[in-house]
Nucleic acid binder design. Structure first.
Length: 569
RNA sequence: GGGCGAUUAGCUCAGUUGGAUAGAGCGCUGGUCUCCGGAACCAGAGGCCGUGGGUUCAAGUCCCACAUCGCCUACCA
């Protein structure tokens, strides 16, 4: 059948919605031409899928939106609009006016099936779009200090960042993943000192750990490695002179471990950016001079302050301490400036929710540097509550008792871990139960979705064995898919590109998992009620076409989540 | 004290940016297996959307006040 031009113009949008929007636009125009409606600025027309079949397939509230401008009763406007619709292609069964003035569209039987042709045509690109128009965006996430292995708390940020990046790439942004290494400052000195202390302990000294030092087992291991490599010669050197060696050794070993753990978790960065680099080429100094020229910096006592209150922060912030040392904030501003200088139009930071007070400050910095407020976006990720069989697992970073990312991936697997971290909006608290995530049961949503995928693969396998080929566009009798569950499946499939775009627009990756659960549920229900493979060749063909579309969406969506798509389970 | 965020079914949480009769999972009760995979499905019970005002054709959603809870409130990173 012939495709309508609108399918191509607005291909990334759901085809049917666009058709209806176009019909409404023309109807409004002709209503004004015929003086049935006063001339008004064309409003943005919304068409939505209905929840209740009694309301048709799609509905628009445009008559109610127009009511205030046009100064007419919404139902009266709806009547004018519905009568003005010229459905040349015969898409519509009927249009009804309902409730306070909704226009309910009933799609002609079989028309919806043609929407699946887009899925078949686009294949693994289905769900993608060009919302981002190739704009460059950077996503900075994890960015944990290299003072210890990643733990469960970092894991959530890692998944949110990684999936967010996938989503943005799918909607047409050029995405760059970056990890900011806080390898300057006190903590690094403490790290080196901690390893040195363990080193001396291994050589028989009794040591006491001061405040701020790290006591995890990994510190002891690093000390042992250094002892093996260098022997006891560091014992006789001055601590101040030898600590940097210990620091560098520990930091780079830990960072390598972090990279490896992330890789096993399916997270790969384009760049690990070192904070030290900002000092190396005087980036922080340059930054401060730039801000000084713009009069955002003032001196009070011996310290330098940044006037963040000029952009709505509640108080000004120190950028250079009385002792002459720049603060972490100063380096972070320099880093963000560098991001924009490197050509990113949009910069997304993913932070722990306990840093939310930091947002006004960073936002002020970005604006002071002359960039749009919107150019920096921050996604906050709430704490993870780690449980085992419903009981909290004790964790304390200071004592070194924590469950590492590595252990979680080992225990529950990458797929379950990743999926579970996206089961809530990122700024809401999340319980993560190790036993539950491991369990292969209906309590574990990742299997529910993967199972749908495996089931369809199984159907296609059997079809192939029986010599039944899945039909392609044009070979399908569109009118055969008319069961309510089939219509429901088709509509849900057509929602996918919008879901991806919605997730990108709002920076809410969890929308994908909720969508997937919906889709899988409708499929499972359909599967239990109806046979795909039957003696009826035409019907089998049509259903194979439908089920293949479901498979494509499951595959594309799971890939965005970084979750595997098993053909057998 | 100030700032930010939350409050929706017994529990954990969604709610597509203001739309029609508020949803899902778990748990609970009762069902489905001669079948393309039961890691599945079906049915049922369960709600003052924290409270009180306001905005309008329409409020879980926007505005104000209050209550309760959490987080932030560094010349740390």
């Amino acid at each position: 059948m012939a495709l309508r031009p609108t399918f191509f113009i607005y291909e990334e949008w759901s085809g049917m919605k666009q058709v209806l929007v176009n019909l409404l636009e023309k109807s409004i125009q002709s209503g004004m031409d015929a003086r049935l409606l006063p001339p008004v600025a064309p409003p943005r027309i919304e068409v939505e899928l209905t929840k209740d079949p009694g309301h048709g397939d799609y509905a628009s509230n445009i008559a109610m939106i127009l009511a205030s401008q046009v100064k007419k009763n919404p139902r009266e406007i709806a009547k004018i609009l519905s009568e003005g619709i010229e459905d040349r292609d015969g898409v519509l069964e009927k249009v009804e006016i309902a409730g306070p003035g909704f226009l309910n569209f009933f799609i002609r039987e079989g028309e919806l099936t043609t929407l699946l042709e887009t899925v078949e045509r686009q294949g693994d690109r289905y769900g993608s779009s060009n919302l981002g128009q190739g704009r460059r965006v950077q996503v900075e996430f994890v960015s944990a200090n290299p003072t210890g292995p990643l733990h469960i708390g970092h894991a959530r940020g890692a998944v949110v960042g990684d999936v967010m990046a996938n989503i943005l790439a799918a909607v047409g942004y050029q995405v760059f993943r970056e990890y900011y290494i806080n390898d300057a400052g006190n903590q690094m000195n403490n790290l080196g000192k901690s390893v040195l202390l363990r080193y001396r302990e291994l050589l028989g000294e009794t040591v006491e750990f001061p405040e701020g030092c790290y006591r995890g087992d990994y510190i002891r291991e690093l000390a042992a490695e250094l002892l093996k490599r260098d022997g006891d010669r560091h014992l006789h050197e001055k601590p101040d002179e030898i600590i940097p060696l210990f620091t560098d050794y520990a930091a780079s070993a830990i960072l390598e471990g972090i990279k490896e753990d992330l890789r096993l978790f399916g997270v790969v960065f384009d760049l690990y950016f070192s904070e030290r680099e900002l000092y190396r080429d005087d980036g922080v100094g340059k930054l401060l001079r730039t801000l000084q020229e713009k009069d955002f910096i003032y001196r009070e006592g011996k310290a330098l302050w940044f006037r963040t209150t000029a952009f709505g922060d509640e108080k000004d912030r120190v950028v250079v301490r009385q002792n002459g040392e720049p603060t972490y904030f100063a380096a972070d501003i320099a880093y963000h400036r560098k991001k924009f200088l490197r050509g990113f139009e949009m910069v997304i930071d993913i932070w722990g929710a306990d840093h939310h007070g930091y947002i006004p400050r960073m936002s002020a910095a970005v604006q002071a540097l002359g960039y749009e407020r919107d150019a920096l976006k921050v996604i906050l990720v709430q704490l993870v509550n780690l449980l085992r069989d419903g009981k909290p697992v004790a964790m304390s970073t200071r004592s070194g008792e924590f469950v590492t990312l590595h252990e979680v991936v080992d225990e529950v697997g990458k797929d379950a871990a990743r999926y579970n971290f996206l089961m809530r909006r990122s700024d809401s608290h999340l319980d993560f139960d190790l036993e539950l995530a491991k369990r292969q049961s209906n309590e574990n949503p990742v299997y529910y979705v993967q199972y749908a995928h495996a089931r369809i693969c199984s159907i296609l396998r059997i079809a192939a064995e029986r010599g039944v080929a899945a039909p392609t566009t044009g070979q399908v009798d569109a009118g055969l898919l008319r069961l309510p569950e089939e219509i429901d499946l088709i509509k849900t499939i057509t929602r996918f590109p919008e879901v991806v775009k919605g997730a990108a627009r709002t920076l809410e990756p969890h929308r994908l998992t909720f969508y997937l659960n919906d889709l899988a549920a409708i499929f499972h229900s359909y599967y239990n009620k109806n046979k795909v493979l039957s003696d009826d060749g035409a019907l089998t063909g049509a259903r194979l076409f439908l089920v293949s579309s479901v498979l494509t969406v499951l595959k594309n969506a799971l890939k965005m989540l970084g979750v595997s798509t098993p053909e057998k389970m």
